[in-house]
């Protein structure tokens, strides 16, 4: 919007659970997802953003103009100062953020670092499909202290068959080049790989192919879907069984070959330790999005539910991030079990499952106060992890260095 008012119509449906009675106790945002570019050079067949129900991206500028980025940096610093934050995360996202240029991403990140108060660390990451990564661009990102997260569905061409460009050509050759370049030349910049679970693929083969890319971390994301638009292949616990198979391969490896966020956060929750993932648990959610026109929105995954689901009506030119904290959708994700369906609140897995991903709870006419469409799959996976952890707890002690007692 570059200084003009937001023009999106207010969505006809909100569907967020009402804030429970009592004083407002919003947590500040600490994660700022900045849409450096709103288009993508790929056209993945399952993309919830470009192939989903929400098409607001069509009305927005392809790249974030300079004034939007400048104002966003100021708003982030303002929020950090107001809440005395010691750490904030800046996630450079898209679309494909590298379409904006590595220099633009570096300049923006530098601007945020210059404007936040002294003592506030800025953790910057770019999330890319890896096809545009070159040695020169990676050097620019590394110099700016921007880590690189990569989106891939496995470590082979077959695994990535749904990740194609706008002409239908496979993205894998370019993505593989980019991923290996990060792993081999810029390992200190390598944040990890995000993979959308495809239950038609062999789970262990997929996991092992990803290990070949040497990621320091992986996350396995359930495909976005909900009760009104169920994800493909839902039923017969295929997603849950897929996760269990990978968990067993990871758990029994004899060494931690890579960090798997979903698995490790599940272990944390089972043991009563702090955890933070959208997929599990009851931790308050503290991320907010700035679109290429400066609109302040909720996270993109909500757009898989219905058109305008992420809309707030706010923008960085006229509003502070504090005003976004009062949006009912933001508030609902900070109230823990109070925002969940009665069935979830009565479930013995509540503190671990947490109702699953917020977007997966949606049902037209019922809003978001429902169990996850993946409820049965999550139960299968969580109980499986709990059983493995219980069995491990019965093992004999050994030395911390792995030697014999």
């Amino acid at each position: 919007m570059s200084g003009e008012a937001a023009t999106d119509p207010a969505p006809a449906v909100l569907g967020h659970p009402a804030r429970p009675p009592g004083p407002e106790t919003s947590l500040p945002f600490r994660q700022f997802i900045v849409k450096a570019h709103g288009r993508c050079n790929l056209a993945c067949t399952y993309c919830y953003l470009y192939a989903g129900p929400d098409s607001t991206w069509r009305t927005r500028p392809p790249a974030a103009p300079a004034d939007v980025l400048d104002r966003t940096a100021t708003r982030i610093a303002e929020h950090a100062r107001a809440h005395e934050l010691t750490d904030v995360a800046v996630v450079l996202h898209g679309g494909e953020p590298l379409l904006a240029g590595a220099d633009t991403l570096a300049d923006f990140t530098t601007r945020v670092r210059e404007r936040v108060p002294a003592g506030c660390a800025v953790h910057a990451t770019v999330q890319t499909n890896a096809t545009l990564l070159t040695e020169e661009r990676l050097a620019v990102l590394a110099e700016a202290g921007i880590r690189v997260g990569i989106s891939l569905d496995g470590g082979t061409a077959a695994h990535n068959r749904r990740r194609v460009d706008h002409a239908g050509r496979p993205s894998w050759p370019a993505a593989a080049r980019g991923a290996l370049l990060v792993a081999e030349r810029f390992p200190e910049s390598y944040a990890g790989v995000l993979t959308v679970v495809d239950p038609t693929l062999d789970p262990v083969e997929t996991y092992e192919s990803l290990l070949a890319l040497e990621p320091p971390a992986l996350d396995l994301l359930l495909p976005h879907g909900n009760w009104s638009a169920p994800p493909p292949h839902l039923g017969d616990l295929r997603h849950g069984d897929w996760l269990c198979a990978v968990f067993d391969r990871w758990w029994a490896a004899g060494r931690r070959e890579t960090r798997v966020r979903l698995f490790e956060e599940c272990v944390a929750l089972l043991l009563g330790l702090p955890a933070s993932t959208e997929a599990l648990g009851l931790a308050p959610f503290d991320a907010v999005v700035v679109e290429t026109d400066g609109s302040i929105e909720q996270v993109d995954s909500l757009k898989s539910a219905y058109p305008g689901a992420a809309w707030t009506g706010l923008d960085v030119f006229r509003h502070t991030f504090d005003e976004a904290l009062r949006h009912p959708g933001v508030a609902a994700r900070q109230t823990g079990a109070a925002a969940l369906a009665a069935q979830c609140r009565a479930c013995p897995l509540l503190r671990v499952c947490g109702g699953g991903h917020y977007a997966h709870r949606y049902r037209a006419g019922h809003g978001f106060q429902n169990p996850s469409v993946y409820c049965a799959d999550l139960q299968r996976f969580i109980r499986h992890a709990a059983a493995r952890l219980t069995a491990a707890a019965a093992l004999e002690p050994t030395q911390r260095d792995g030697g014999t007692p």
Binding site: H93, L221, E264, S276, A279, A283, D286, A287, P348, I382
Partner: peptide, 21 residues
Amino acid sequence: DSDEPLDLELREMLWGFDNSF
């Protein structure tokens, strides 16, 4: 086959946004 009870590095910032690291 859901009503059965589950028995209570792992840390420093916890970043909960799943569509990145």
